[in-house]
């Protein structure tokens, strides 16, 4: 069942067209990987899914993006509610320079949940869901920046999980991590997909092949090919995908 339906999406930065007629459906509670060369629209596309591009001047968008059947570019859309529903994990872990506790409950406070008991329950649940609870339960008032890179990334995911989103957007979430930490985040993604729909942008093709069920290949703002990951990586239909995967691109 699809949760996101994108139809003929175009995005312009001024006169430059960064996305061209993108049409695809993202399946619910599956991991979808977006691959392609740098500057070909993967991250731009990811950011259209929670309207992060709205923050950039001179951006024009046409086409439609529906999440759970609702057009997120409708005039009545509450951006705060949209970003609660569609959270984003960035390339570099970006915890606030606050305590671990304050980082996780930050989203709850923003959404008006101030009851301490509820906050603590949700804090523990979200830290447990990213397997960080046992590591930090005795130092919740410690500054989050003292954690390792991989722990910080898991904390950032917990910070999203606490507001119970439906979709997690991950933009190169492991590129700043070593292979062991990457493996932990990948295992976590595998567990998280039971609850969330995950879309990951990655330059690591082995990672895309390992973690995702669906893969889309972007080139020069176009979605060249989209399909089941094993089909894309073993028998891509488009010769441009084949050239990219075999390193004969360009």
């Amino acid at each position: 069942m699809s949760i996101i339906e994108v139809n003929k999406l175009n995005l312009f930065y001024g006169n430059f067209q960064a996305l061209k007629e993108i049409t695809l459906r993202i399946e619910k509670q599956k991991i979808t990987a977006l691959i392609g060369p740098s500057g070909c629209g993967k991250s731009t596309f990811l950011r259209t899914l929670n309207r992060m591009n709205d923050l950039i001047d001179d951006v024009r968008i046409s086409g439609s993006v529906k999440i759970s059947g609702n057009d997120i570019y409708g005039s009545d859309v509450d951006l705060l509610a949209l970003r609660k529903k569609v959270g984003m994990v960035f390339q570099r872990p970006n915890p606030f320079p606050l305590s671990i506790y304050d980082n996780v409950v930050y989203g709850l406070r923003v959404h008006g949940i101030l009851d301490k008991k509820i906050m603590e329950q949700k804090l523990q649940w979200s830290l447990e869901s990213v397997h960080l609870w046992d590591e930090v339960k005795d130092k919740l008032d410690q500054n989050a920046l003292t954690l390792s890179g991989e722990q910080q990334q898991r904390l950032c995911i917990a910070r999203l999980a606490v507001v119970e989103p439906e979709v997690l957007l991950m933009d190169e979430p492991c590129s700043a991590l070593d292979p062991m930490s990457t493996a932990k985040i990948e295992d976590l993604m595998y567990e998280l997909k039971k609850q969330y729909t995950i879309i990951i942008v990655t330059h690591n093709m082995q990672q895309a092949a390992r973690v995702s069920e669906y893969t889309g290949y972007f080139l020069l703002g176009e979605l060249v090919e989209f399909g089941e990951t094993n089909q894309i990586f073993t028998s891509p239909k488009d010769s441009r995908t084949e050239d990219y995967l075999t390193g004969r691109f360009g």
């Binding site: 093709m205 082995q206 092949a209 990586f233 073993t234 028998s235 891509p236 995908t241 995967l245 075999t246």
Partner: peptide, 9 residues
């Protein structure tokens, strides 16, 4: 080399 696509095949 972890080949993919035609190379893997």
């Amino acid at each position: 080399h972890q080949p993919m696509a035609i190379d893997l095949r």
